[in-house]
Design a protein around this nucleic acid. Structure first.
Lengths: 344, 344
DNA sequence: TTGTACGCGTTATCAT
DNA sequence: ATGATAACGCGTACAA
């Protein structure tokens, strides 16, 4: 278990001062080319490994950011991480993944850890509970400390002055409803993955607007809510699917919810799209491979990750402009899970 | 942008020495209860945030580990991360995600970053290329420096004395082949996601053994290889599926490959399982939702993550015993993508 | 119980 | 171009 080589070790071996070695290693001017070469090659040979802790104690730079995600089991975040990484890696930045599991306390714990760790910035998809609670104060504190925060996917309504990159959720769902009506559907339900969340509430807004605008029928029983997509919303869906008064089409609001809808339909022996049309939300490759392939609202997930990260690195680099609020458009991928009831 | 509060700031306000504050804050003995309380509450009020960089410069502890994964787009890693996190979080550890995208250089870059960063340990699923190249020397160097490494999912054959947690890959595939023969299949093909990888080579071994043992027919054309599951293996599969001489069943070796098989079958108009039986590998929830639901070899992915992490934390805590080589069993989930050709 | 003094590895400032 | 020195924030051996 060899001790780690330090700058001073190198300096000693070359009988020069540590500061010269430091300058040479970090590519700063003030060292003759000849000496620099000698230092670099010796460092290489001695297996010198810079010590980020020491460096960051001095420079406040850790080349690390924090990534707050809501639930690591949601495949949504694979694409987010992919986007994040694609801009981080070339810049030499790493990221710490924090899955808060839709739990305010965990979010707070992680945020504190990230501060202690000295991350240079935070990418967050913050939680808002049904009762409207959130960690807004903590986020503000972080910002006050000079650590840039960019919200992606979700944001906290009452917490302003933060950069954000989110989907145009209202339009996404409203467009979905329009699509369904063009296909002849007049009785449409929706499954709200989890009340309180920014995304879900926005999507719900979009749904209500569309319903009103299109003068479509909907009923309270057709609005399925569920804290955890996998427990009670499944039962509610079964009940709905088994009732006489079920809608002809149902809209999902995220991928786990789409799964639940498909499971419930199967459990009730309903054929898609013959017995019920399903409009998914989010797009896994599997959507294409199902029978029938699932028509779905696709978010530009990687883009969200990429743009949020770019914004964050900008702030880290010292950009001072006022916060950007970026909204991206969703895309409706038409496949075969929606039946055409009647041509327009 | 308020400057960060330090231990000395607190000490000054209370007119005591920084060391006392340090002791109080880190719960060490040697401070009167009364004073400790005062310190703690003031620290709270002043928004004191410990500085991990400074602390770790002294203690060598960063409460952070590195997680090397092969490709962040593979849903396999959602479960791995979930398992990892479930044991890390309660212990106050964070992790840095490094997706090497099946690229040796990226792996090396990340490993160096992790060393510089001062991670206390590394969880790695290392790459081995078709030509047998790998970063074994680098891993050994890391171990020599006293940073524990645990291999999970994959390992490097020639690099011994490392803890590892992998699947019993040979048995997994062999059992799959047995299952297929019990279902009456005598012509079986396999899709090797990427030659060189420990997992894939082991799975291939299991296949070859089973073929020999069972005296089953197989042909070189039935062994599909592909570097990237999504490019040429798709074409090869199409060709195979369109030929007269196709096998009656095909075995996948990871989830992305299963996707490709399903796509190719669809593109060729083959019905599963009527025209071709498919035995998947790995198990997404979606496998259950497909039509037909996919029969598959399921790895205990979360368990792999959990056990590997437990091992790693053990090493970090100083456990000195000789390396554990843990092999977990796969489970065959029978659904409906395999046709019964003939009852035994 | 509390305080003093030093060092962890690095960089920045100032001097040479 | 190079070197000496201080400082980053914290923990700890030792002294009081």
């Amino acid at each position: 278990m060899g001790k780690k080589v330090t700058i001073s070790d190198i300096a000693r071996r070359l009988d020069i001062s540590p500061s010269t070695v430091s300058r040479a290693l970090s590519g700063k001017p003030g060292v003759s080319d000849e000496l620099r070469k000698k230092i670099l090659s010796l460092a290489e040979k001695m297996d010198y490994i810079p010590n980020v802790a020491a460096k960051s104690l001095k420079t406040q730079k850790t080349k690390t950011i924090g990534l707050i995600i809501s639930d690591i089991r949601n495949p949504f975040f694979l694409d987010v991480m992919h986007g994040v990484e694609s801009v981080l890696f070339p810049r030499g930045y790493k990221f710490i993944v924090c899955s808060i599991n839709e739990n305010l306390e965990r979010e707070a714990v992680y945020l504190n850890w990230l501060m202690e760790h000295g991350v240079e910035g935070i990418l967050a998809s913050p939680l808002t509970t049904v009762s409207g609670k959130h960690n807004g104060r903590l986020y503000k504190k972080i910002a006050r400390l000079g650590i840039p925060v960019v919200f992606y996917d979700r944001l906290i309504q009452s917490v302003e002055n933060f950069d954000s990159v989110v989907l145009d959720n209202e339009t996404a769902i409203a467009d979905g409803a329009f699509y369904l009506t063009r296909k002849g559907h007049k009785k449409i339900g929706i499954c709200l993955a989890r009340r309180g969340l920014y995304t879900i509430e926005e999507r719900y807004k979009g749904f209500k607007k569309a319903v009103e605008l299109l003068r479509i029928e909907t009923k309270p029983e057709w609005i399925i809510e569920g804290k955890h997509p996998l427990d009670n919303s499944f039962e509610k869906l079964r009940k709905l699917f088994n009732s006489e008064e079920r809608p002809t089409a149902i809209i999902s609001t995220n991928h786990p919810m789409t799964r639940t809808i498909l499971k419930a339909a199967r459990a009730c022996g309903l054929k898609i799209p013959e017995d019920i049309s399903v409009l998914g939300f989010d797009d896994l490759i599997e959507n294409e491979l199902m029978s029938p392939p699932i028509t779905t609202i696709r978010q530009p997930v990687m883009e969200i990750g990429r743009i949020a990260t770019t914004l964050l690195l900008g702030r880290i680099d010292g950009e001072k402009g006022k916060p950007s609020s970026i909204k991206l458009k969703a895309e409706l991928i038409e496949r075969e899970s929606v039946k055409t009831l009647m041509l327009p």
